[in-house]
Amino acid sequence: MLTLKQSRRLQTVLIATLAWLVALAIFFPIFWMILTSFKTEIDAFATPPQLFFTPTLENYVHIDERSDYFHFAWNSVVISFGSTLAGMLLAVPAAYSMAFFETKRTKSTLLWMLSTKMLPPVGVLVPIYLLFKDAGLLDTKTGLVIIYTLINLPIMVWMVYTYFKEIPKDILEAARLDGATPAQEIYRVLLPIGKGGLASTVLLSLILCWNEAFWSLNLTASSAAPLTAMVASYSSPEGLFWAKLSAVSTLACAPILIFGWLSQKQLVRGLSFGAVK
């Protein structure tokens, strides 16, 4: 018979094992993709699938020759950061207004903004495509920055709003009594206090923009195409080059996996839309 203490320890070990097994299962597709990207095309099809093999960089070399990874990566960076910056410039004042100057209609306004996120983007694809064509915005980074800002704005307002809501109003009133202007209130008081929350909002926006594929596939051809479009261009149904496809996919998500791991707290907070503090 186990003593109570032993059985409790056994339970802890079992739970930890289970948790790590789940983690392994969840991570497996990513792991396998990364592994495949270092195989030759022949190894990628080997029977049985090999865990141990001679790694090769040939897929990455091939990708670099065929399609200039850094061109797409640079587009992704510019678009993600541009749209996040624009989004924050709009969202922070809006959230500030909603959180600290609440009126009867604030709640409805916020709800209405969020409800627009429920609408499928295809509903507005045709007009936006036509408009972009006329305005010369098709296949431009500016065009994508505008679109991404539009689609992420409601979520960003909502997240910043929930963070601002947590800040006690007394602090702001004290600043106001000391003669702070609204702009000073935002830059001197709110932003420093809400730093953590804002950082996760920024990270969430960056990730959403980085991963966005609907608009980037439809509105870009080559000169402004981000990484998602590059991955899509490799996944044609007839050419089943798994190793190369894996390498492309790995390149597309590697920056997020790495930065995400380095800023775990913000990642979890941002990706749970602010639920995890």
């Binding site: 739970i15 930890a16 948790a19 790590w20 789940v22 983690a23 969840i26 991570f27 597709p29 990513i30 396998w32 993709m33 495949t36 990730i207 980085w210 991963n211 966005e212 594929a213 990484l227 998602t228 991955v231 899509a232 996944s235 798994w242 496809l245 894996s246 996919s249 597309a252 998500c253 997020i256 996996l257 995400g260 791991w261 775990q264 707290k265 990642l267 979890v268 990706l271 749970s272 995890v276």
Partner: peptide
């Protein structure tokens, strides 16, 4: 659980990845 932070991040990783990449990985599996 010990190392809860790391586990949490791994559980959330798929969410940080583009659907395009998810599609690719699962197409293989």
């Amino acid at each position: 659980i010990r190392a809860e932070g790391a586990l949490r991040t791994i559980y959330l990783y798929p969410m940080a990845i583009s659907f395009i990449v998810t599609g690719t990985a699962w197409k293989w599996l």
